[in-house]
Design a protein around this nucleic acid. Structure first.
Lengths: 222, 222
DNA sequence: ATCCATTGGGTACACCGTACCCAATGTGGG
DNA sequence: CCCACATTGGGTACGGTGTACCCAATGGAT
């Protein structure tokens, strides 16, 4: 078999998308340009368009591929609250691992692709025991998703992936520090206050507020 | 007084920002370029930079100015739940009036400016009677904000400001219609189901789930 | 051996943000 | 009254972007 596979590995949609993800991972989202992705692949810029229609489609595919890399745990033996925590924590980690995903998901209209459907399906199953009407369950999942993304945005605020402290409040406050806060007494109080020590699980606690609402809704229904 | 005010009205930061908002309002967010804003003002492109440092700063200012145009109602006589509904509904209307605000707020790191501080202060006051610790209150406000933006994104999904139906579920479903839903039974069920009639207040009901959680958290605390 | 569909990529265009520098303008001091 | 000057307006140009269009290389089928 003299089938030398070819001088260079042939371009595939997957290879293109992976290269774009690598560029985003180590040069940032705004560094993802067609020329740069091509350069990273050692190919011509226009060749990418053989496997991708648009830059928009490329971004969608990036989101989908990264989403697919994160799988949710086996739900066996978890109650619905634990499952929703696992759901949120997985996405949380995904966004922290790939901060550009925030901007990428925002620039594309959901749902994004097969992988996001799988995520949705997992979450719907997680909520099944709550007995919500399906559209209500979908809305809860949307709310949790938005909560995760909002929390990530706060954490990513300006500590551009430097410190490992999961503590969001600090940046929050630094941002507000030197404004004319005198007209906003409650805001000033908020900034003045250090984070209480009990706040050791900011992200999970905020999620629990939402889940409490879900739980309560169920009980008032029946 | 021969003080002819000048051949043309002098450029101000405010005039520049307003022009940019007008461009965004009727040609879309991606149409907001320096050249286009200048053209809309009848001025030179580079003149804008006398009043604005960056395009980023321009976008921030656009967000701030639009935010300032929407004022929250007098909270007198409203309980905290009514106030939060008023808060959410005001932002909801703002985003629907100016769909580009979704992308604009996403591309700028919060908080945005004076006007957003005023909004935050109003919301903090609205939550005061709940007796939350300030950081928890801030987090609730963040969650509500994210809920509003997420809901707007769903509604704006693809019915690009054509129909007047506030009904989000339809687009939702159209988007999912023709996918390999067989591997995702719960998702397929969700798509198959028409919206129940009781769903006549989708947005407010979803907000109530969150507010139920806030209320419940309070009661478990004491 | 030949044809042809598929894939790779080079060139070119319209548009973008903005660095840089000069022109016009209105103001305060002599 | 006139001049110096600070402020504001804008033209030119540069390096970047996405991508339309077209041709070259490739490799499998006939």
């Amino acid at each position: 078999m003299s089938r030398r596979p070819r001088a260079t590995e042939p371009l595939t949609r997957e290879r293109v998308v992976s290269a774009a993800i690598e560029v985003a991972d180590d040069r940032g989202y705004e560094a993802v340009s067609m020329r740069r992705v091509a350069e990273h692949l050692g190919s011509g810029t226009m060749s990418l368009y053989r496997h991708i229609a648009d830059k928009n489609e490329l971004v969608s595919a990036m989101v989908d591929q990264v989403t697919g890399r994160y799988t949710y745990p086996d739900p066996e033996g978890m109650d619905w609250r634990e499952r929703m925590h696992a759901f949120a924590r997985t996405d949380w980690r995904m966004f922290l691992d790939h901060p550009w995903m925030l901007a990428a998901t925002a620039s594309v209209t959901p749902p994004f692709g097969t992988q996001s459907f799988a995520a949705m399906e997992w979450a719907l199953e997680a909520l099944e025991s709550v007995g919500l009407e399906p559209h209500a369950a979908a809305q809860v999942i949307m709310t949790v998703n938005n909560y995760v993304q909002g929390s990530v945005r706060v954490v990513l605020g300006e500590a551009d992936h430097d410190t490992e402290t999961d503590d969001p409040g600090v940046n929050w406050q630094r941002r507000l520090r030197d404004i004319d806060l005198d007209q906003f007494p409650r805001l000033r109080e908020l900034v003045r206050l250090p984070l209480p020590q009990t706040d050791r699980n900011w992200f999970a606690d905020g999620l629990d507020v939402i889940l409490d609402g879900v739980q309560n809704h169920r009980s008032t229904d029946r």
